[in-house]
Amino acid sequence: MINFNGNLLFQENIKLSTENRGFKYGDTIFETVKVLNNKVVFWEDHYFRLMASMRMLRMKIPMEFTLEFLEQEILKTVKVQNEASSFRVRLSIYRKDGGLYTPKTNEVDYLIEANENAYQTKKIYSIDLFKDFYNFSGLLSTIKTNNRMVNTLASIFADENDLDNCILLNERKGVVEVSNGNVFVVKGTIIKTPALTEGCIKGIIRKKVIEILAKNKEYTLEETIISPFEIQKADEVFITNAIIGIQPITNYKKKVFTTEIGEKLASNLKVLQFVGN
Score class of each variant (00 low, 15 high):
residue 3 N to Q: 10
residue 7 N to R: 13
residue 18 T to Q: 13
residue 19 E to L: 15
residue 24 K to C: 07
residue 25 Y to L: 06
residue 31 E to V: 03
residue 33 V to P: 00
residue 34 K to N: 02
residue 39 K to T: 02
residue 39 K to D: 00
residue 40 V to K: 01
residue 42 F to G: 02
residue 47 Y to V: 01
residue 50 L to W: 02
residue 52 A to K: 15
residue 55 R to Q: 11
residue 58 R to P: 03
residue 59 M to F: 14
residue 60 K to N: 14
residue 61 I to G: 09
residue 62 P to L: 04
residue 66 T to H: 07
residue 66 T to I: 09
residue 68 E to C: 05
residue 72 Q to T: 15
residue 87 F to H: 03
residue 89 V to L: 09
residue 95 R to L: 04
residue 97 D to R: 02
residue 106 N to M: 11
residue 106 N to G: 09
residue 108 V to T: 05
residue 110 Y to P: 06
residue 118 A to Q: 10
residue 119 Y to P: 14
residue 123 K to E: 13
residue 124 I to K: 08
residue 130 F to M: 13
residue 133 F to A: 12
residue 142 T to A: 03
residue 144 K to T: 03
residue 145 T to S: 11
residue 147 N to G: 10
residue 147 N to A: 12
residue 148 R to M: 08
residue 149 M to F: 14
residue 152 T to L: 14
residue 154 A to D: 02
residue 154 A to W: 01
residue 157 F to Y: 05
residue 159 D to R: 11
residue 163 L to H: 04
residue 174 G to M: 13
residue 175 V to M: 02
residue 178 V to W: 08
residue 180 N to M: 14
residue 188 G to M: 12
residue 193 T to F: 06
residue 198 E to H: 10
residue 200 C to R: 13
residue 204 I to E: 00
residue 205 I to L: 08
residue 207 K to S: 01
residue 208 K to S: 01
residue 211 E to G: 06
residue 211 E to M: 08
residue 218 E to V: 07
residue 228 P to V: 06
residue 233 K to G: 05
residue 234 A to D: 03
residue 236 E to G: 04
residue 241 N to W: 00
residue 241 N to Y: 01
residue 247 Q to T: 06
residue 249 I to N: 04
residue 252 Y to L: 06
residue 263 E to K: 14
residue 263 E to C: 08
residue 267 S to F: 15
residue 268 N to Q: 11
residue 270 K to Y: 09
residue 271 V to G: 00
